[in-house]
Design a protein around this nucleic acid. Sequence first.
DNA 1: AACTGGGTCAACCGCCCGATG
DNA 2: CCATCGGGCGGTTGACCCAGT
Length: 354
Amino acid sequence: MGRAPCCDKANVKKGPWSPEEDTKLKAYIEENGTGGNWIALPQKIGLKRCGKSCRLRWLNYLRPNIRHGGFSEEEDNIICSLYISIGSRWSIIAAQLPGRTDNDIKNYWNTKLKKKLLGKQRKEQQARGATCLTFKHEMKRESENYTVPGMVNQVAHWPLLQPPVMPLPSTHQDPHDSIRNLLVRLGGRFSDNHPHSSTTTSTINPMNFRYPLDVPFAQDQPYDQNSMNILSSASSLSPLNSTCSQVTGGTTPFDVINVDGPNDVFQGLDGFQAELSELIYSNSQQILDGFEGFYGTDNMVDGSSTGTSSVESSSWGDINSLPYPQFVSGFEACQQQTIPQVSTYDESSYFGPQ
DNA sequence: AACTGGGTCAACCGCCCGATG
DNA sequence: CCATCGGGCGGTTGACCCAGT
């Protein structure tokens, strides 16, 4: 037996909202709030609409300070980055873009950004003529069986890669190194402090490229995104970025990045992210250059400090000096925290008196 | 002018999850 | 512990628009 419908389908209006309906809904919510009950709300104001429909209309269209269209390059970059990192968690992505709704971003991604990236990918692949099946298979295989030692309840899914190039002194495979090693194997270079270097010594760690995990969340406080330039440089970031949870007062949108199992690494990304993976393979150096540009040439740090990482960068001493110190603290928090909790933006801030 | 195909986006659907009784 | 409910979310749909033919 299925569950009862949330409203009487026969008696609710569907389809586009009329200006009158908009006015009614907006006026009521601005004055009274939702009352904490969307289902009852349409009856209160005499709308023949499903409560969920009202909620959607309010959140996606009527709510104050909503912006539609006109996505900036920075917003593009943030969306792409976050998508690559966390997948199609549109509400989380939207939380980082003030005035944007998850629906808007979802539409924008599906209709424009995805094509933009793939178009770029094809171009570059044609230019390089590289085939990336090996990488693709490796990604899939390796991602199936890795959990970070010491992590409980919350699982980070970094692909476990045996280091064919560099032996690891530590007793466990550091996920950062795994990623780095993979990229090295695939031809990426991790220079100490200069793009000229072609050694395998790593100071660039894609795994440190993590979205802010402890930025106090607020709709009017987007990330400083000045340095993000995925589309214009390497086309994408590493899809190897894991997701993680953090509990630092429960105020960040990234408290929510919770994964439930290894398959979630590429949740929602199977098709597109695989293609992005190929892109990464074919552009590994560009990507890394992008990272260097992002962090400055010598600030990339392997926070996990293994034998393969030659530099415990002095500049790392003050992670706050980095454009995104949260990337690092985020990882640390991942290792320490265990309570994943899904949260979303605080709707109450939009609803006025409840 | 009519048709067509692709793009866009608002809205719906159905599932999941937490709260509650 | 279980059933029910409402909120929230991601995926999908379909109406509309527009450029090309």
